[in-house]
Every structure is written in structure tokens, then in C-alpha cells.
Design a protein around this nucleic acid. Structure first.
Lengths: 306, 306
DNA sequence: CTAAAGCAGTAGCGTTGCTACATCGTGCTC
DNA sequence: GAGCACGATGTAGCAACGCTACTGCTTTAG
């Protein structure tokens, strides 16, 4: 492994011509310079210096090495400068795990902002459900997790993970626009009137499915006939638009609701989820973590304004 | 002035995750690694490492430095190689990692050649499977890796590693000589006729096992009953010679097939692997690398003549 | 021919960098 | 929840490194 200090001596020798001059310039004795260059020769196994009269001359091989030394020393100086600049700066790598609708409406806007305000931060997005993403966060696989929590089912957080609430997201009834209840143009729709509908919800054991069954039972008094299962709200909205199903969906995925879909509040019920960001407590002081959280909060605030 | 040795430790820490693993890989005690990284922090005046649970985590600033360290170390390796090229001599130390059959039929002949043509080059052989050897090559543990690639499963190479194809190695059916199908003296044997045989393959997750199962399924339409598992082709040939098993083996290990073993082509199928050498791109200019590659190519060419 | 310049070698000394060992905190297991 | 294993860090001690001071040699200038 080459040593930059010794390479520096070689470069200086090339610049200044004599070992004595190098020693003078770098505040060493000539003996020290001579010894270090001898070590460099031994390490590389290549003759670098030849006596020439009263002084020395660099061999051809040494000239090749001087070129590299120059490049390396320049690069090393840049690295030091860059490191100093980066010490307080938001930089590095940030891995964001998020569920689909938060990806579209929180993570992506946040990353767009960060690309401007923190160009040295490399953001990576992974789509993952909170059930698996939160434990993975604690294990260090992610740096920020966007997750949600239904009111009827609080989420336990792994140890060492902190929660930062972003927005409270009301659940709506989603109907085909040509559905009888949609055409009545009422603001709210009672759940009981949908007891016989075909429902869509997420895969079992995930929050959406839980919430749909819980809400229909608590506020409508029936067990929904769940005919379609997908975790993709966009697919669900497509099913609704084609008149094939109804669903309970929180506001976030409804931001991109297509034509043919009617959104109504649930009559006499206020079902909500909380969307939150989770980080490792150990990362609290990290500049990048703060920037991530700030950008996520900002994106969430812009949504709540709507 | 940054020190490349310390930067190397930082880069290794980034790759391997724990100080203990770095110490293990570089033959130090964890204490030494910890101390050197602490020195690097003091020198630069920037916090690089933070405790995280039982281990450590690199700070954002450290990740910035890792990028530079990577570039610097690569450049330094190129400088060394270039210097060696300028001196023209094939000398130094060459560490070859190879799987068993390539060791016998490529690496050993190559070393024998080099002992004559490049007496100043000290060759060392390590038996290692490509799965672990290729990443280790990138990290500088080896100088040349002999590896193979099955047609149905291309190998990804680590960054900074170059591939040099040596030979294409056809897969054969290996039968006990007294096996019914062997005594028929046909050139080829259909795989389907061996659906009920007892098979031998390598340990799971290595290429040979993969290939055996894939080939039997694709060309024989059955899942082989793998009764014996060894990565040692010589053991396998011993099992075959005693009539205990059949196997699919590429040509390379069959060069030393003992008596009692019959080798047949697979009827109506052409399954092959490519045996290749891998080197670091940074070593391209190094005479010893060129000599190694040349000797390996020569050894491979002698095999293909057979 | 003498004086001065320049480089390399040696002895000595302070510093560096390693190991061995101990300690501490954390996470896993029974 | 206690015990255990693991990872990181701190300390003491020792060897190697890298410097200075000094010496000796060769070469060039005057």
C-alpha cells in the first residue's frame, strides 16, 4: 500500500531537484527525506532514484509514479476539503420505506424538495408495508419509514424507533359515480346502505383489510362481502370506476382518484388513520434524518391544506 | 494529510459493517482498527463513527469520505500497477483463488509455467468458490480468481473486476462403468433414462447443485433424487466408480476420471459452463497480472486441445 | 587543492501502532 | 429475567517506525 507522505516527498523531489531542497521546504533533515525515499523504493521494489553527480536523478519509473502521486495528492486534498464541507451538511444516503399512497403523495414530493435543498443526499425509496418496514427500520435496513395507524388498532413500535405524526387521514366511502347512492349527491352516505355491496380491501393481516372489516361491523353492523383483494389503491379505484365494487379508503390514495369515482364521507362516523414517519432514535442528531423529516412534514402539510 | 491505510479501514468498515469483521479480514485485532479509526477522526476533526446498538454506524460525513477513499485506493492500486509496468519485471506476489477442478487443471499448470518464466513471482493458491472469491477479489484479498458461470445463471461481477473467458466446458453424464446404460456403449445417454437414479451434486446454493437440478428438470423432466452432496468432484467420481451414484459433471474434473467411470454426452442437450479468470481492473497494467492471465490462458488452451 | 554542497548511513530517542487483556454496553437465549 | 455471547473501546506494554544529529563519502566550484 503506497503511502501518500512518501509520494509527496517524491513529487517535491521532482519539483525541486535535490533532496536538500525538499528537506528545506518541508522542514525535515535531508537524512529523513533520503530515508523515506529509500523506504518507498523498498516497498515498491522499483528503483526510483539514481545518483547523478553531486545530486540525484529520478528514474523513468519514478516519473511515472510522480504523475500518479500528483493526481493522488490532489484527490486527497479534495477529499479533505469535501469532508470538512460535508461535516455539517446534509449528505450521505437515505433509504425511505413507504406504503404506496404515501410514496406518491409524501415521499416523492419530499425527495423532490431534497434534491434541491440537499443535493448531496442520495435518496432511495423502497415500497414496503409498515408491518415489515418498522422492524426493518430498527435493524438498520431503512432510515425513514412512512407508516400508518388506524384508530382502532394502535401500532406498537420496535424499541429505539421514534414516531413523528404527519397527518390525520379521514376514511371515505368510495363509490362508482353512477352508483345510486352517489347520484343522490348527498355529502355523506350511511354505511348500512352498503351492507350488500361488493367490497374491495387489502390482503389479510394488513391494516386496510382490518379497518374495512372493523368499520363495517362497528358503524354498519355487517360483515362486508370482500370480493377483491389488492394492496394497490389505484387498482381498487379502477375497480370502483368500472362499477365493480365499493371500498373504504383514506384520503391519501384518493388524491389521485380518477373520473367515475365518487367520494363520500361516512354518515355519523369519523374513522381516521394517522400517517406518521418513523426514525431510529439513534439517528436523531443526524443532519440527513432531520432533513428527511422536515421534507416529509412539509409534504404532509401541503396535503392537509387541500 | 490523509493516510490511505486508515481510509482503507474506513472503506472496509463500510463494506463489512462491524469493526470486528474488518479486523478479522485484515488480520488485526479489533482494538487496532478502533484505534486507527479514532485517529482518523482526530486528524480530520469530523465525527465518522457513531455507536449503534452493539455495533457502529458510519455518519453521513463518513459516507462522503468513503466515496473519496474508494477513488483514492483505486487510483493508488493503478499507480502501483503502472509503476510495476514501468519497471517491466514480473515479480512480487500473486494470490490465485480457484475452485477445485480449475486448481488442478488450470492453476497448477499455470504456476508451473510461471515458475520457469517468472521466477521472481511468488504464486500462492487458495481454494475458494467463486461466490466468495469474486467479492474478495474486489476487496484485494486475491489477485486472480478462477470462476465459472453456468449458461442458465449469469454471474454478476463486483465493481472494478474484469472477466477473461478461458474455456467453454461441456457437461457430461457420469455413470458407473458397469451401469446398464454405460455397457450399451452409446455415445450419448438421454437424461430421462436416469430419472430414478441416485444423484450426487454440490452443496446447496452453489453452482453445481443449481445446474444439476436445472438440467434434470429442463432436459429430463424430473427432479433428481440427490442423495449425496459434496463439492469435491474427486469424491463424486469415487462414488460413481463404486456404482453408488450418477452425476452431471463438466469436463474439467473429468480430466482425472478414474477407472470404473463412464462418461457420456447428454442426448439432445448441450449444457455448458464458461470458465473464466477475473482480475481487478486497476491491475490491468501490472506485468504480474498479465503473466498470470497469459499462463492461465495457455493452460486452458492446452485443455481444449484434448 | 581546498572548501562547500549534496547524499547516504548509523545511533539514539520519541512517537506510533500493534497485541493482550479488561471493561462496558447490547442483544439473544433459555 | 438471568446468563451468555458479541462488539466496541480503553489501558499497558512492546516492537517498529521516523525523526534528528552526526559521520563519511563523492562531486563540483573557486
Amino acid at each position: 500500500m503506497l503511502d501518500l507522505r512518501r509520494l509527496r516527498l517524491l513529487r517535491e523531489l521532482h519539483e525541486r531537484g535535490t533532496i536538500a531542497a525538499v528537506a528545506d521546504a518541508l522542514q525535515f533533515t535531508p537524512s529523513a527525506v533520503s530515508q523515506q525515499l529509500a523506504v518507498l523504493e523498498r516497498e515498491t521494489g522499483v528503483a526510483l532514484i539514481a545518483r547523478a553527480g553531486r545530486g540525484v536523478r529520478l528514474t523513468d519509473a519514478a516519473l511515472v509514479l510522480v504523475e500518479h502521486a500528483d493526481a493522488l495528492l490532489t484527490r486527497a486534498a479534495e477529499a479533505e476539503a469535501d469532508l470538512a464541507a460535508a461535516s455539517g451538511e446534509v449528505a450521505g444516503r437515505a433509504r425511505i420505506a413507504t406504503f404506496q399512497s404515501a410514496a406518491l403523495h409524501i415521499a416523492l414530493p419530499a425527495i423532490e424538495t431534497l434534491a434541491g435543498t440537499a443535493p448531496r443526499l442520495r435518496c432511495e425509496v423502497v415500497e414496503a408495508e409498515p408491518e415489515s418496514a418498522l422492524p426493518a427500520l430498527a435493524l438498520g435496513d431503512h432510515d425513514l419509514v412512512l407508516a400508518d395507524e388506524w384508530e382502532h388498532q394502535p401500532r406498537g413500535l420496535p424499541r429505539g424507533v421514534e414516531r413523528h405524526d404527519l397527518l390525520r387521514d379521514p376514511v371515505r366511502i368510495v363509490l362508482p359515480a353512477r352508483h345510486r347512492l352517489a347520484r343522490e349527491h348527498r355529502e355523506t352516505v350511511p354505511l348500512t346502505s352498503l351492507a350488500d355491496a361488493h367490497w374491495t380491501a387489502g390482503h389479510e393481516e394488513l391494516g386496510w383489510d382490518e379497518m374495512t372489516r372493523w368499520t363495517c361491523r362497528a358503524h354498519g353492523g355487517f360483515d362486508p362481502d370482500i370480493r377483491h383483494r389488492t394492496n394497490d389503491a389505484i387498482v381498487t379505484l379502477g375497480l370502483v370506476a368500472r362499477g365493480l365494487t365499493v371500498a373504504l379508503l383514506p384520503g391519501l390514495p384518493l388524491l389521485g382518484a380518477p373520473r367515475g369515482v365518487a367520494v363520500r364521507a361516512i354518515a355519523d362516523a369519523d374513522v381516521r388513520r394517522t400517517v406518521f414517519a418513523a426514525t431510529r432514535a439513534a439517528d436523531a442528531a443526524r443532519p440527513s434524518t432531520g432533513a428527511l423529516l422536515g421534507a416529509a412534514r412539509e409534504a404532509a402539510a401541503r396535503i392537509e391544506e387541500l
